[in-house]
């Protein structure tokens, strides 16, 4: 009798297994909306490195003295359904170690300042916004760079998104500074190590700005052209100044690979 019950139990289990398979349901995101930073808005399929745009730099160097403020934009995205009304979001500043941090009001316009707080909203039917960070030109920026750490803060409209995408950093100055496009790849394959002296030389001999936008828009063949152009130009400069070859601010001879 026991063995009969055992066999029936086994059969039932097999039958249950056989008929229990069915397609899994799709689960929709029904939780409270979340918020995180992301890459610039571009056509679908465009791929980006994970940490692209996490650090941006800006400089007043290229502007005339009348320009006292500038705006740097980051991109922020919601997770969840779009809403039919404006959704405010909240950013907070965090201290970056080892650098001089910008001071709200003095070096940048605080995110909760009455003049700008309404800018930090996700518009109706949208899942994306450009985050303005308004920086101020102060005399001290002629001699140093300041940094600003920004983090998403949970509020009544949004919970936090992925932990690795909750922050952004901004570095700004009034001096010539390394454009974001002059990254490690560009240093290794195009322009060599960055130095302010080399950057200034490139601007001087071409008459172009060589800021981030300019460098970002260079095609591959333009990059090849300018690399060779600078190599030739530097050879001629050093031939004309045999006792004073071009060196960077660290005393190292400048080269373009």
């Amino acid at each position: 009798m026991k063995s009969g019950i055992f066999s029936i139990t086994i059969c039932c289990l097999f039958a249950a297994v056989a008929i229990s398979c069915k397609q899994d349901q799709y689960y929709l995101f029904n939780h409270k909306a979340r918020l995180q930073f992301g890459p610039p808005l571009n056509p679908p399929g465009t791929s980006y490195p994970t940490f692209m745009d996490t650090l941006k730099s800006a400089t007043f160097y290229y502007y005339d003295n009348s320009k006292m403020v500038d705006t740097v934009y980051f991109d922020i995205y919601t997770i969840g359904k779009p809403a039919s009304k404006d959704r405010k979001y909240t950013l907070q500043v965090y201290e970056l170690p080892g650098v001089e941090n910008a001071i709200a009001g003095q070096h940048y316009v605080a995110f909760d300042d009455a003049s700008v707080k309404d800018l930090y909203v996700i518009k109706p039917d949208s899942v994306h916004a450009r985050v303005p960070v308004i920086i101020k030109r102060t005399p001290e920026l002629k001699n140093k760079s300041l940094s600003l750490g920004i983090r998403v803060k949970e509020d009544e409209n949004f919970e936090l998104g992925e932990s690795s995408k909750l922050w952004r950093k901004l570095q700004f100055t009034d001096r010539l500074s390394r454009p974001d496009a002059w990254d490690e790849f560009a240093s290794q394959y195009y322009w060599g190590p960055y130095s302010v002296a080399k950057h200034q030389y490139m601007i001087n001999v071409t008459g172009f700005r060589w800021d981030n936008q300019y460098m970002d828009e260079l095609s591959d063949e333009q990059v090849r052209y300018y690399r060779s152009f600078f190599q030739t130009s530097l050879i001629e400069y050093n031939k004309a100044h045999p006792d004073a070859p071009l060196k960077d601010e660290y005393g190292e001879p400048i080269n373009f690979l």
């Binding site: 591959d220 090849r224 060779s228 152009f229 030739t232 050879i235």
Partner: peptide
């Protein structure tokens, strides 16, 4: 020269140098 090994738009690049001292 125009490198035909990579994407190009048909424009010749910088003048080729004779040697390292141009």
């Amino acid at each position: 020269s125009i490198s035909t090994n990579s994407l190009n738009s048909g424009l010749f690049g910088s003048k080729t140098r004779r040697n390292s001292s141009n």
